[in-house]
Amino acid sequence: MKGPENKRKIKLLKQREFIAFAALIIIFMAFSLASENFFTLFNVMNIFRQASINAIIAVGMTFVIISGGIDLSVGAIVSLSGVMAAMVMGNWGMNSVVGVLCGLIVGIVIGFINGFVITKGGVPPIIATVASMTIAKGLALVLTGGRSVTNLPDSFSVIGRGNIGALPIPVFIIIITYVFGYVLLKKTRFGATVFGIGGNEEAARLAGTSVEWVKIRVYMFCGAMSAISGLIMASRLNSGQPLAGDGLDLNAIAAVVIGGASVNGGVGGVVGSLIGALLMSVLTNGFDLIGMGRYYQMIFTGIVLILAVTLQKKTR
């Protein structure tokens, strides 16, 4: 019985995740040599903290991509949920719990609409979510008049800036969402069905699964994760900003794909996505420390994305 046990351990970092992991380690070591400020506890926590927003969206995006879909509305959900929570607290004087709940509901509702339009309306995911992205972004701008919403209670700022022991709360939330996401994807019927649908939708239908409802729930989950990121973002900025989430969609997709997921669906995992998100964050942080400008960073991040995915294709 020793064989299977060993195999299971190796499986923890499957081949497709391994490339990303190896890249992460190499880049990490390179920056450690290049800058003495890089490999310190403070900076590593900082990397995690910076990664948190992208990483948490990526959990949701992992489900969407494995199911064979794509969600381009996550950035707009980040903005709108942050704005909504901020308005509930800052403008209407509700406490942080109500604010957080309202933010989450925004994300779940937009996710539901995405899933509904995609399954019942037969609209391709890329179109449906571009549409809801535009709508959510417009809503955020209309609600705020394009200005940031301030005057948030102190208790709210804990989410983005507080610590539990040495652990920043956003990092704590990463851990919770990833453990939850991992179990949901690997250990539940829902997760198994997501893999099935992404691998072969027709076979899943003939296996008697309710393909549509599972898909709707996938987008709701992704919306909820994006809303959590939106709340962290609003807390860190200490305000609700209608354009805070711009561009996060593509970052999340990049993280998931670097982590080994296939945009054709059926393949992927949250562990890989976390590695992908950390990799992107390490790049930003490291480049900052060695003094490379943001504009150059974008160019390099793009190149890394291409390299990572090409390597995965080659080794598969």
Partner: peptide, 15 residues
Amino acid sequence: QGLFMNLNIRRNIAM
């Protein structure tokens, strides 16, 4: 229509 090519035997049987 019949198989999930992305999955292993165990999950295909149990699906």
